[in-house]
């Protein structure tokens, strides 16, 4: 379990995250929503120990995260960042295998267990057809699936996803959320997902956290906090809320 207690992050004297409390429990998906620049990515980075906190503490299975090495954290926490284009030709399989770095010696080559974990992740993310294709030859949706496969190959049981569905088509957006949901429900993973899509958050998340200017202003079950007043507060837009007839979950429609 990953837990943030009253954490703050400062960049050069400016507070970008203040007094944030968050608990990622096994089996649950937490959606993090907020306007651009609200501190969502900083929160994910802090949860992973990659952004230095100026106050509070982050506990990974009860241990302070800053007392752990990067490898120890990487074996427990897997990150899906917004993907970047590589200038080097890297195959899908090579890319996914980099997710196993924390398990081997720095000199070493992958062992059978590493290859097994990578192959399983490749299969889970529906990438079996192109392990030898180059990353730069894939479509945006395929690439994002490979980035998720690498996170799954690392076998970290806490998934942190930074806008994994940005630039994806509808089918790929749903697929990404389904893959994460499956890991959470069936294997007790916990996940935090940054998303701008409130309908996906309503559909798949167990909890929604709303950030405004570096502060968590609302958190709770989607049905409780996804309302017109809160959405106006964080995005400054008007919305109509009703119920999705197919799932019975909240449905958000923006008024233009």
């Amino acid at each position: 379990m990953l837990e943030a207690r009253d954490i703050s992050v400062k960049y050069g004297g400016t507070t970008v995250l203040a007094d944030a409390n968050l608990r990622l429990s096994p089996g649950k998906i937490t959606a993090i929503v907020g306007a651009n620049g609200a501190g969502k990515t900083t929160l994910i980075k802090a949860l992973n120990g990659a952004a230095p906190i100026s106050a509070g503490e982050i506990l990974l299975d009860g241990k302070a995260i800053n007392s752990l090495s990067r490898s120890e954290i990487a074996r427990e926490v897997a990150v899906v960042a917004q993907e970047t284009e590589s200038r080097f030709p890297v195959s899908v399989r090579e890319f996914v295998l980099t997710g196993r770095f924390a398990y081997g010696s720095s000199f070493g080559w992958e062992n059978e267990r590493d290859i097994e974990a990578a192959d399983r992740a490749i299969a889970d993310c529906d990438l079996r057809e192109f392990p030898d294709r180059l990353m730069n030859d894939l479509s945006g949706g395929e690439r994002q699936r490979v980035v998720l496969a690498r996170a799954l190959a690392s076998e970290g049981r806490v998934l942190l996803l930074d806008e994994p569905t940005a630039n994806l088509d509808l089918a790929n957006q749903t697929l990404m959320f389904r893959l994460v949901l499956e890991r959470c429900r069936k294997q007790d993973y916990s996940a935090a997902i940054i998303t701008h899509d409130l309908n996906l958050a309503a559909e798949f998340a167990d909890e929604v956290v709303m950030l405004v200017k570096g502060r968590i202003v609302h958190s709770g079950k989607p049905a409780e906090i996804l309302n017109a007043k809160n959405i106006r507060e964080i995005f400054n837009v008007e919305v109509i809320l009703d119920t999705n007839p197919s799932s019975g979950k909240a449905r958000v429609t923006q008024v233009y």
Partner: peptide
């Protein structure tokens, strides 16, 4: 082996150990 991750991006490298 670490350079294989650094080559993809500094954040990727930090995230994966």
């Amino acid at each position: 082996k670490a350079l294989n991750l650094m080559m993809l991006g500094e954040r990727d490298a930090v995230d994966f150990g």
